[in-house]
Design a binder for these strands. Sequence first.
DNA 1: CATTAAACTTGCAAAATGCAAGTTTATTAT
DNA 2: ATAATAAACTTGCATTTTGCAAGTTTAATG
Lengths: 121, 121
Amino acid sequence: MKKQINIEKRSGCPISCTMDLVGDKWSLLIIRDMLYLGKTTYNEFLNSNEGISTNILNDRLIMLTEVGLISFTGTAKRKKYVLTKMGLDLKPVLESIALFGMKHFISDKRFLRDLKKVLKL
Amino acid sequence: MKKQINIEKRSGCPISCTMDLVGDKWSLLIIRDMLYLGKTTYNEFLNSNEGISTNILNDRLIMLTEVGLISFTGTAKRKKYVLTKMGLDLKPVLESIALFGMKHFISDKRFLRDLKKVLKL
DNA sequence: CATTAAACTTGCAAAATGCAAGTTTATTAT
DNA sequence: ATAATAAACTTGCATTTTGCAAGTTTAATG
C-alpha cells in the first residue's frame, strides 16, 4: 500500500511554501546530516543523537525524495541518499539556523569554535 | 489551568535546538507576520492567508513568549506582541527561507520583484 | 545454503492539530 | 449607565501525526 503524502500549500508565500516542505521537527535534521556529517544511508540517519524512529525516518526519506530535495542511488537494500540541487539550496537556511542556535544555545566557547569548523562557517 | 509547554532539547546541536523552538508549521509564520507585515495583535495573526486556528495561535503565542522570542505590552485584552532581540535574530533565517522559496516556488517574475520589496531583500 | 544486518513495515498508544462552539473582558454606541 | 460588539482567548472532540516496540523482507557475507 502506497503512502499518501500530502504536500498541500497553505498559501503562495515563499516562506509558507518552504515550511510546508521542511517545517517539521525532523526533515532539516536529515538534511543537516547529509550536508555537514556526510551521512548517506538509512542506518546512519537512524543513529543521530536526536533519535528519530524508524517509521518517521522512512516517511521523511520518501517525502523528501518525492518533493525533490533528495534522491537515491543503489539498489533497494543498499540505498545511498544524496541531496539534489534543490536540496543543496537549503544550505544557507541550515547555516543561518546554525548561527542562530550557536548564538543562543551554545555557551562553551571551545565547543563553539570546533563546531564552526565542522559546519564550515 | 496553566498550559504545560514542553521545550525539551533533543540534542546539543544548535540546528536541533533551534528546530525544537520553531520547527513546526506555524511559529515561523507568526514571526514572519511580525517581521515583514508589521502585525502585532492576535486578530492580525489569525487573519493570515494560511488560516491558523485560534487554539493553535494561542498556544504558539504563549510558547513563543515563554521561550523568549516574543513579548507583549498592553493589558489583557489589547495585547501587542513584539519580537524580542532574540526573536529579531531569526531575521536571517526567515530571509534565507524566503530566498529558497522564491527560487523554487514562485514563477511569476513580476510578483517576485514586488515580493522582494516587501521582504526588503 | 544459512546467517546477518540493512531497510523497511505494521500495530497501537500518545501527542499535536483542526474545527466548531462557547466564555470573558474591553471598547463603542445608545 | 447599560447594551451591543468584538478581541482574545478556552473548551471539547474528531482527525492526524508521532513515538515505540515488534515483525518482515531482501541483499550481502561466510
